[in-house]
């Protein structure tokens, strides 16, 4: 291996990646319950859209390894692998996806709208709209003279969106500690990258903003780790933002239920053949990590996921009346027919 990454870091990334992969395999089973043989998006224990990230774990693991809880991450509609790598509470995240009262958002957000302020994680289902808040987190850190950074994850389809381009400019001109991470899985739903942009390398967008742009051409966690180390280090040191694009692979449809009839078979097969998890396992072995130890990591990940899913499914559903809560932390009187039931917010920080 030409890139030197400490073995314990490799192991941690591996654990994040296998956790995410297994987590989504389990979610997929749960999601399909009640949706077979006829797929009805509103049926089963997890209704609504579900976007899975199998094949993209390396980008999240390699970047988030360098992050602290105090660093901010915003993720897009495909958030689970990023959330797991950022250390989002797995049980409460799962409860949220199952729409339970003890979920991260009390069942109000669902899988595209996960918020865990304890580790400064949030996501949004509107393309590229996580970028401006990441810039804001970077701005807050700068104003407060803290050395935390913010990372906005987005797909390659999002690099043609105004919110992304405007954010690059604002981050650059104010030299904010923000890293934009583009997960290039070649597809935006059914639209291949070359149909919607004339650049192969999305990190070239950085040039127009006089910001470093880096592309990692293959989804090896170690390569991502290395590139992210430099970008995050630069941001933490007060030297401004970076645009980092990582080639990943979409092993599944855009969302569950996507027939993918637009996608050539060779492309689907190629995505199956590349597996950054297996490559990282090989790296671990060549670093002298025993097969038993690798298997132990996998087992630990599976146990943790199984436990989170069992826990989540045991949690109570919210009552209908809870829909009226949480529009405001200080509910003004006259907005709902309910008595304001909240403690006055903002008192404890």
């Amino acid at each position: 291996m030409d890139i030197m990454v400490a073995v314990n870091e490799l192991q941690s990334m591996f654990e994040d990646m296998v956790t995410a992969r297994y987590y989504e395999e389990r979610l997929q089973e749960e999601y399909l319950e009640g949706k077979q043989p006829a797929f009805d998006i509103s049926a089963g224990p997890i209704p609504g859209e579900l976007h899975l990230a199998a094949g993209q774990e390396a980008a999240a693991a390699g970047v988030c390894r360098h992050l602290r809880d105090s660093d901010t991450v915003t993720a897009p509609h495909r958030p689970h692998h990023v959330a797991i790598a950022k250390g989002v509470d797995l049980k409460r995240m799962t409860a949220e996806i199952f729409g339970r009262r003890t979920g991260l958002s009390k069942g109000k957000g669902g899988h595209m709208h996960l918020f865990d302020p304890d580790v400064n994680f949030a996501c949004s289902g509107i393309i590229a709209q996580g970028c401006p808040p990441a810039v804001g987190a970077g701005l807050a850190a700068t104003k407060r003279s803290e050395d935390s950074v913010a990372v906005a994850f987005l797909g390659e389809g999002a690099i043609s969106q105004g919110a992304f381009l405007e954010s690059l400019n604002l981050a650059a001109v104010r030299e904010l500690p923000v890293i934009f991470v583009v997960e290039d899985n070649d597809w935006a739903i059914s639209m291949p990258k070359d149909r919607v942009t004339d650049v192969d390398d999305g990190s070239q967008r950085a040039g127009g903003f006089d910001m470093p742009g880096v592309r990692v051409d293959y989804d090896d966690a170690t390569a991502v780790y290395d590139a992210a180390k430099e970008a995050i280090g630069r941001a933490r040191a007060g030297n401004g933002p970076t645009l980092l694009e990582v080639q990943v692979h979409r092993r599944m449809g855009h969302f569950m239920g996507d027939p993918e009839s637009y996608r050539p078979d060779e492309d689907k097969e190629a995505a199956q053949e590349r597996d950054s998890i297996e490559r990282l396992a090989a790296d671990l072995r060549s670093e002298g990590v025993a097969d038993d130890d690798i298997e132990e990591i996998r087992e630990r990940a599976r146990d943790r996921v199984d436990e989170a899913i069992e826990w989540a499914k045991d949690q109570p559903e919210p009552g209908p009346e809870e829909a009226y809560e949480d529009v405001f932390v200080n509910p003004p009187s006259g907005v709902t027919t309910e008595e304001p039931s909240h403690e006055l917010a903002g008192g404890d920080d």
Binding site: G99, E317, P320
Partner: peptide, 16 residues
């Protein structure tokens, strides 16, 4: 729809 954003979980979406 009462003046709340559309909630995710089924019991609350059904409510609003």
């Amino acid at each position: 729809v009462p003046d709340v954003p559309l909630p995710y979980a089924r019991p609350m979406e059904d409510e609003v």
